[in-house]
């Protein structure tokens, strides 16, 4: 429980720090905070927008949480998100379920390239997953300029997906899927023998091996589940929000998932709160630009500040 208290304090401290750094731009911290608040939760649209941003963040956050729990450093959420979107688009003609299933499979398969290289050639997945991100970005760029370019042929983007997720009040059904996924992830990690083995592998692979756990299989499994979550995020983003692919489709959701998961202390249920926090931060940052003219970098800056504060607070705690 104390871990989460530290996370909450860190998040709050980061917000205060951010607001005060606004003073450098000649704004009062208080007015900045109220702009962020009104821009992220102040109206129905703002709230819907925050929720829309939180959905992919929740899924990529879960992806990171599961992988890190198992001691697998999957930094490839961005690439898995992209191939998830690609697969979902291609499979969209077969319906929503098939499309999302394809997204998960593609994400899992893409991530598994990294675990295969780890298991057969001992290539560190921190590197391979990052490299696979670049590969996926180029794959996407080639696809939208080449084989998947819209039929009108005008712009480097694909045609609309054949199906779309149903919407209620400006928020698509993906939010339900994402929430279900985080409950599932929690159940998997903390309520099943498979989850126990994943966690044991992450905490102490040597002990896990001596306890008869096939460590390699755990790594592969964690990577596949993690990739599936990121792929699902891409699929849902496609069917719920963008409806088509273009080069900037992933928009950093894969990387932001790392921040989301770290703030959530790698706990699947806490990831819900964490993703809402970052979703609100990004949406609020938009309003901050429009209303106060503060650069877009503030959202990224905010993410960094949150993580740094978190690290500082954890160390303060560790020292005591």
């Amino acid at each position: 429980m104390r871990r989460f208290a530290v996370a909450v304090i860190a998040a709050a401290a980061a917000i205060v720090l951010l607001a005060f750094s606004g003073a450098l731009f000649g704004h009062s911290p208080w007015s900045l905070l109220s702009i962020v608040a009104s821009g992220s939760v102040g109206s129905r649209f703002a709230l819907a927008s925050t929720l829309l941003k939180s959905v992919p963040l929740l899924l990529t956050g879960l992806s990171v949480a599961i992988a890190f729990r198992a001691g697998v450093w999957n930094i490839g959420g961005e690439g898995q998100f992209i191939v998830g979107g690609l697969a979902a688009l291609v499979a969209s003609r077969f319906g929503i379920v098939a499309s999302l299933a394809a997204a998960m499979l593609a994400g899992a398969a893409w991530a598994s390239i990294a675990s295969a290289m780890r298991l057969w050639r001992n290539a560190p997945e921190v590197l391979t997953t990052i490299l696979l991100n670049f590969t996926a970005i180029h794959l996407l760029g080639w696809s939208v300029n080449g084989p998947l370019r819209e039929h009108a042929g005008q712009y480097p983007q694909t045609d609309l997906a054949h199906v779309a997720l149903p919407e209620i009040g400006g928020v698509h059904f993906g939010i339900v899927i994402a929430l279900a996924a985080s409950v599932f992830a929690w159940w998997l990690l903390y309520r099943t023998a498979a989850g126990l083995r994943l966690r044991a592998t992450g905490l102490n692979p040597n002990a896990a091996r001596w306890a008869g756990i096939r460590v390699g299989a755990q790594l592969a499994r964690a990577m596949a589940i993690s990739g599936a979550a990121a792929g699902l995020a891409g699929g849902i983003e496609l069917l719920g929000v963008t409806h088509r692919l273009f080069e900037r489709f992933a928009a950093g959701y894969g990387y932001s998932g790392i921040a989301v998961a770290l703030l959530a202390q790698l706990h699947p249920l806490a990831t819900i709160a964490s993703s809402l926090f970052f979703g609100a931060l990004v949406t609020g940052a938009g309003e901050l630009q429009r209303a106060a003219g503060i650069s877009a970098g503030v959202a990224t800056f905010g993410q960094a500040v949150v993580i740094l504060t978190l690290i500082v607070f954890e160390h303060v705690r560790a020292d005591r």
Binding site: F45, S49, V241, A251, G252, G286, Q289, G293, A296
Partner: peptide, 14 residues
């Protein structure tokens, strides 16, 4: 007023 928007939801928000 201006805003940097990278994703469609951000564009729509703006």
């Amino acid at each position: 007023s201006n805003q940097e928007t990278k994703t469609p939801p951000e564009m729509l928000d703006g």
